[in-house]
Design a protein around this nucleic acid. Structure first.
Lengths: 220, 220
DNA sequence: AACAATCGGTTGCAATTGCAACAAGTTAGG
DNA sequence: CCTAACTTGTTGCAATTGCAACCGATTGTT
């Protein structure tokens, strides 16, 4: 377990906790280690899950199978990523997604309920652990809200504009960089790449925006 | 303050706390009451916000103004609804939305950081307060994820199917009711109402689904 | 240097969608 | 009971979009 301390220290959940405190938390929360082979399933849609998982090595995928057997990839997970926290915190016994190891995978499972209930020694870091989790979920909430704002627009132009306005709010000016390549941007706003490319140049022609590579400016 | 205890007792945040415990929390967290007139602004995009608000009477709207002055309504708030928790928990000093009173409005502001840090008396309900907040945010996270799943699909048919599959997962069968009218459903999945109506009947004609009013069945 | 792989742009076409306007049915209030 | 407001479905049309195929530039590898 100790060999993964470095990874754990970098996670948002354990931010601000030192070596010994993390070990104490792992102790408190009956942490257990689990290994999976490449392509192995960690849990399936509908399985019960009462613990939060932290990927300490390898890569995994969260996906969902629809009722015709098509699988949709929701997210990729890497070392340091957390999963299952929403289900555990919401008190939902069965997960609605599946988790598959992409490479050989190692996971630390933590009983989060135990971790946050002050144990006999009433460790001072329980509080930090809670604040970290709140922060983590709040950040995800805000990100998802931003994303919904964007993809709920009906035209590509409106989606792009909504995305640009988000970046402008974040950067505080009409000039900003886009942290995606065109493919990723199209995927993020949920449209076809070539249609997006077309629309970007239309917007440029219409004098709405200017750009070169990933440097964008929204014009008056 | 006491006259609103009934409302507060029904909120998710104070779930499981009794009268006296809620009063103690309000005490701990330097709660303050604020009243607003119809159409008055509670806070604007860019304003600082360090407290969580709970609507105790009246209605309000969370909205966003884009840089051309168009306003987009994000949510409506009613008595018992919480706002600002994501910004406060994420530690983001400036809000990216505005809040306007729709009717005369009364709000209790709570310093959530104080509320969850065990005070000298180390009140036992602090823990419950934290669990409630975690649950609340986790539930919203799951709901938003479901919604993104749906609206990120490219065609109306795919969006409807994704929505139906969600309802099937929730109901555990091929038969379910839709808790929206057609207008609301169209808005939820982010498409034009009449185009959605057209597509619903196409899907029925193609033998994919069957429905009458709000009773739907997904066929084999 | 040859090669494959990736990335971004372009274009034609068919399909989907938004929009607007209208119609029929239902509900609610006075 | 009458009217207004709301709900749902219908349709024609124009605009947008996805899709597929292709091109040129760039990058990294052998």
């Amino acid at each position: 377990m100790e060999k993964y301390l470095k990874v754990l220290q970098k996670t948002t959940l354990f931010e601000g906790l030192n070596r010994d405190e993390i070990l104490a938390v792992l102790q408190c929360s009956s942490a257990r280690m689990a290994s999976y082979q490449k392509e192995e399933c960690v849990f399936m849609q509908g399985d019960p899950l009462s613990q939060v998982g932290i990927v300490v090595s390898g890569k995994a995928r969260i996906q969902r199978e629809d009722f015709h057997g098509n699988t949709i990839i929701l997210t990729g997970l890497e070392a340091g990523d957390l999963f299952g926290e929403a289900f555990v915190c919401a008190g939902i016994p069965k997960v609605s997604v599946s988790l598959w190891a992409v490479t050989p995978l190692e996971v630390v499972f933590v009983d989060y309920q135990k971790a946050i209930s002050p144990c006999s020694s009433s460790c001072p870091f329980h509080q930090k652990l809670v604040a970290n989790m709140l922060k983590l979920m709040a950040q995800r909430l805000l990100m998802l809200n931003e994303k919904i704002d964007i993809i709920q627009k009906t035209t590509i132009r409106a989606k792009l504009m909504a995305f640009f306005e988000l970046r402008m709010r974040q950067e505080g000016g009409r000039h900003f960089t886009v942290p995606f390549n065109r493919n990723e941007l199209a995927e993020y706003i949920g449209v076809n790449r070539s249609a997006m490319s077309r629309e970007l140049w239309n917007m440029k022609a219409d004098g709405l925006i200017d750009f070169a590579k990933n440097q964008f400016t929204v014009l008056e």
